[in-house]
Design a protein around this nucleic acid. Sequence first.
RNA 1: GGCGCCAUGGUGCAACGGUUAGCACGCGACCCUUUCAAGGUCGAAACGCGAGUUCGAUUCUCGCUGGCGCUACCA
Length: 449
Amino acid sequence: MTDSISTNSKPRVRFAPSPTGYLHVGGARTALFNWLFARHEGGTFILRVEDTDTERNRPELVEGILASLRWLGLQWDEGPIFQSQRLSLYRVAAEKLLASGAAYLCYCAPEKYAGGDAATETDAEEAPTRRRVTRCACRDGHPAIGAQKPAVRFRVQLGVTTSFEDIVFGKNETSNDEIEDFVLLRSPKDGSELGLPTYQLGAVVDDIEMRITHVIRGADHISNTPKQVMLYRALGAEVPKFAHVPLILGPDRKRLSKRHGATSVASYEEEGFIAEAFRNFLCLLGWSTGDDSEFMRTDELLKRFSLEGVSRTNGVFDRAKLEWYNSQYLQKLPLDELLPLVQGELERAGIWRAEWNGAEKEWFAHTVDLLRPRTHLLTDFAKWSLAFFSDTFEYDPAAKEKFWKDARLAGMLGKLADALAAIPEWNHDACEQALRGIAETEGVKAGLL
RNA sequence: GGCGCCAUGGUGCAACGGUUAGCACGCGACCCUUUCAAGGUCGAAACGCGAGUUCGAUUCUCGCUGGCGCUACCA
């Protein structure tokens, strides 16, 4: 039972984004679960870039995806491995399947084979319009050879059923008759012998080659898992364990997309969210410890994470709750952990001053601690820091007045005044200027009330 | 259309045959606070519908409804 010597007992998982966009919150959570699982089990977390779709692939987006993963602190142990750089692997696999009869060459035009699903959509109430799975003559060795170069299709064995056990969804059984002869290799565009692999082939070949033990991915893949199970078997490989995680939806319960607002991880970073808070929030969307724990720092998440706690219900991304998590972290983080984050924010805003981490470090720490109870985002620090620069509003009295008025409305007046009063002697200009600003605003206040 | 999956307040989770159905976000009120946050207290708010099984169903089974997913030479 305990063959601790065997390195094979350690799970190997992967996150496999496709560079067709930025890292979105759904992908981020999938990555997070993979990472948590790997770390919890002492396994290996691999990053693989699925860039076989030359049409949609945008190589320049890869760096952004990696940056978002780094921001989230999801360190990968191997990779990134690019599928586009190992095409021969998939072709060898396809040839093997061709040779064994598990696959065949299909000369049909893609649109003809697909069977025009959308086209018949308008013919309402047409009983005869049974759009079952299409099988073409190529499958039976009677290819309608045309000008088109052939694609390689998997020959689905009919009359039987394919099943697999999902760690979160349980047993899944699908009749093979419902599964189309999916494409393994697209028809070659150029003069080459064989084309580019599709997702199904690429994912399975790589998961075999990388010795992936647990496939943790979005539930949108649950329907094509049977196809992949067939592929594993046809390739004579052991089928890994599957764990599908529920999808993340927008407020309208539709799959989360750009029209719901910010969906990229990068946009939350820019807005001033703390990575650990974002992670805490994301983790509890579709997973729970079994009790009512909510505020859990990363070490605790790592300790408690388990695939068994993953939910089967799609969840709505609740921005308000994310903001709550962020303010919780802003409140509760030990000051020495918060300081670097604030510094990073001020540097981004271009208003960081070296003294704040030197001679004035004590004042800076005190001020951050003073202000944090009323901040919700890291960017709030940059906003209120304007008070500490005597020349900020020098040429813009209107902006100055607005700033202090906002400060009053936000309840920041007293805090800022305290912070300003504590500014070291040699920074007296700023202090005086700002206090004058407060006085003026107070005058406005008195007049209004 | 076919196939599959899912179903607790507005949202995220808990309760895994017997509870006044619990927690959190959000919302409302109050306390605290010169103000605003933070914090505290209280409150409104849910087991989709219909049959079964059972002494007893939110919990098990079936049907319905609703939602989502797949049905691409996208992943």
